[in-house]
Structure formats: structure tokens, C-alpha cells
Amino acid sequence: MDKVLIFGTSHTNCLARALPDFKKEAGDDISFEVVARGPMGLPGGLCVTNHAGEKIPNPLIDYATQAANMRRGNRIWLISVLAMNNANTTGMFRDSAAPFAVASRAEDGTETVVGSGRVIDEDLIKRGHLARLESHKEGLKTLKSLKPHRVVQLAPYPIMRDPDEIVELLSQFPERLAARGVTADEIQVNPVELRKKIWDMEFEACKIVAEEAEVDFLVSDNHMIGEDGMRGIDSSLDPAHCTPEWGLEILRQLKGHIEQAAG
């Protein structure tokens, strides 16, 4: 039997909420379980340091893996929904005090600048992403000590295109905005080209980290992504997080990936 253990931050919630419905269609040969979710769901991240100073898998994942392994012959799949939060939030809103643009250079030497304000080289931002994800990469590698069948890193979910919809979704939280001293009038969404550029860089960094950690990297299915690479189906809970409908699509995709990988 395939045992799929899912863990991550707030982007795991859409999967958890979709799971009760999905279990009916998943069948008996594969089980899905959300081990940890939410901002504090996995304290310490994928790995923690033991008393001897060694990096070991997070005990939550370790215990869940051991429990899933109780029956001989089970195949364990560890699904990381970590490392995608920045991709979904960074640069979404224009910081009027410090606006920025990203400069890229094509192989023929042509320069492209998206956004406006202080210009930052694309490669500099990419290096920053990779530096930030270094500990995540080590965490993914550490998970292999649990001897799962495979480790899968979910790619960052695509981001929303429509700035009006982003503002509208954000306006659901007037009290939280007020608590942070922000009024709705102050909210300006960055141009879609800039947001997409930032997401592309985060996506690329996440992919590199998955490759270097030698784990699967599961990209959202084509039918979930628009032609412009933005989120293709109406499934936004708030400007950064997705609905259970999106979660259901991801779970279906995961099942397909597992069946395909299992041959």
C-alpha cells in the first residue's frame, strides 16, 4: 500500500480541507495523511538538531513515517509543502517607500527591466532565494534517512493575476489590516509582470533545490495554470492561499504522480 504523508505550512491547509472528499475517490490502495500543517505545524522545519548536534528529521515526520511503516510492504511517500510561501507573497504589494524593478539579461545581451524604482539584478535575487532555501535543501536530504519510497517537493502554486481580486480578497480582513496600521487605500498591487517575474525566480530556486536534494518536484498541472503562467482556475481563498478545490486538484495530481512513479 502507498502511504502518503503530507506536511508543510499554511499552503497545506487546502490539501487538508480537500482530503475528506478525496479519500472517497482515492481508493483503498493509497492513503493520504496530513501530518503537520499551518505556520506552526512543523516546528523547527524539516529537520532539527539532536543533543549530539546532528541534523535529524523532524520527529513529527519521523513518528508518522514509523507509524505508516508498521505494516510490512507499505511504501512511504513524503510530500513537502514547505518553501512556497515566499513565492506566493514576495513582491505582491508595492512598497511605495522602496519600489523596485528587476533587471534581466538575455543571452544576446538584451536587457529587460520589469517594475519601477530601484533596479536589482535578477541573478542577485536568485542567489538570495537559493541562500534562503539552503536549509530547506538540507532538510529534504535529511528526510531520506527515514527511507521513504520517494520524497516529493510541491512546486509553488501559481499566483493570482487580477490585482482587483487581490485587493478584494484582502479586504476580507479589515481588522487585521487596521491592527497593522494599514488602510485599504494604501494597498497597491505590483504590476503583474513584476509579480510573475518574482514568482518565476522563486519557482526556479525551488526547482534547483529539489534537484540538488534529489527529490521529485511536482509542478501544478497544465489545466491549473493559465497561458500566462498565472493561476488558471478560480481557487483563491485569500491573496496567497488556495481553496479546497485547488487542494483537491493537487491531491489528484499527487495520486497520478505516485501511480506513475510506482509503475
Binding site: 536587457e111 533596479v119 536589482i120
Partner: peptide, 11 residues
């Protein structure tokens, strides 16, 4: 160094 003239100038 800088990858682009634009970033160089801006910096």
C-alpha cells in the same frame, strides 16, 4: 559585478 547596465546605473 553587475549583470546589467540598468542595475549598475540604479545602484
Amino acid at each position: 559585478g553587475f549583470a546589467t547596465q540598468a542595475a549598475f546605473d540604479s545602484d
